[in-house]
């Protein structure tokens, strides 16, 4: 009640009332100009034959022509399939490996902090640098990986050019970089699990595996769910590694939705078609993340 009295008394002061508006105005302006306005125009452009070089004035409304073209485009369908496959595999691998590492590090008696920092490093590096380092290691002629495989008499590949290996190689590199994020988040969640529960489980005769499934997992369920969602949202827009390592090839086997749009809507300046693809991707992302948004807002 005291707070109410304070607020009412001050609300009469005009300059004090202006304060929150001034404080929030820059964000509203920036978000309106850089996100709301573009999103609306992406939608509008998606119904036009807008080509950048001809300008917006020459663009005509073409109805759903772009959408029909897009859904009939085999490369696009392949890119959607690749993206879904990639996201599913990457998130599952990252979650399983990240969780195992988190539980393992938590069980160490010494050196938890050092290990946590060192294992986190891959996630912190610029994605471009990560991609280039792996490119050098996996180079067909001058790479250390092929050299080691050859000396062990194992088959070697041209990792990024071979249809058999390109997808898996990019997947592996992405998993390598993002497991540390999952590990860090789950390791932080594990700190909140009380040791009493493990002691109680031990008294009941639960072994290590049972403790993992009946104590650890239920306790960090919400951390696991949140982490999986964040990773899903980020993996779905995968572009940097693909663009640098394969450009979507060979034969489109590593093309993701963003890479497809970059090649066939942005780089060739066919902005109407590109916008249409962007809208389709936006809808897919919204469906994927509706759960996350609901949770985060409460």
């Amino acid at each position: 009640m005291k707070r109410n009295a304070l607020t009412n008394g001050r609300a009469s002061d005009a300059s004090e009332r202006a304060f929150p508006r001034l404080m929030i105005a820059p964000t509203v302006l920036v978000m309106a100009a850089l996100t709301a306005y573009p999103l609306v125009f992406t939608l509008i452009y998606s119904f036009t034959d807008y080509q950048y070089l001809k300008g917006t004035d020459a663009a005509k409304f073409v109805g759903f022509k772009n959408y029909v073209m897009l859904f009939n485009n085999t490369y696009f369908r392949q890119a959607v399939l690749n993206t879904v496959k990639f996201t599913l595999l990457a998130v599952i691998l990252e979650m399983v490996i990240g969780l195992l590492i988190a539980v393992f590090i938590k069980s160490l008696k010494k050196g938890q902090k050092v290990m946590r920092t060192l294992l986190l490093l891959p996630y912190l590096l610029p994605t471009v640098t990560v991609a280039l380092s792996w490119r050098m290691m996996l180079s067909a002629n001058y790479g250390i990986v092929n050299q080691v495989l050859e000396s062990l008499h194992l088959p070697v590949y041209n990792w990024f050019m071979d249809i058999k290996t390109a997808f898996g190689t990019v997947l592996l590199i992405d998993v390598w970089q993002n497991v540390p994020f999952v590990f860090l988040l789950l390791y932080a969640s594990l700190q909140g699990v009380s040791t009493n529960q493990y002691e109680a489980a031990m008294i009941d005769g639960a072994n290590v595996v049972q403790q993992f499934f009946y104590v650890t997992i239920p306790n960090i369920k919400s951390g696991i769910a949140l982490c999986a969602l964040l990773r899903t949202i980020d993996t779905f827009r995968l572009f940097e590694k693909v663009n640098i390592l394969t450009g979507g090839g060979p034969a489109g086997t590593t093309s993701t939705i963003t890479q497809f749009l970059y090649n066939y809507g942005i780089k060739n300046l066919k902005f109407g078609f590109g916008s249409c693809g962007a809208i389709v991707m936006t809808v897919l992302v919204l469906i994927l993340s509706s759960f996350y948004i609901k949770r985060a807002i409460h």
Binding site: P38, L39, F41, T42, R237, F271, A278, V285, L286, S289
Partner: peptide, 15 residues
């Protein structure tokens, strides 16, 4: 905005 992909904004921004 945190959730949407960059391609949702890039083309109108470029223009």
């Amino acid at each position: 905005v945190r959730v949407l992909p960059p391609v949702a904004f890039t083309i109108p921004l470029y223009t």
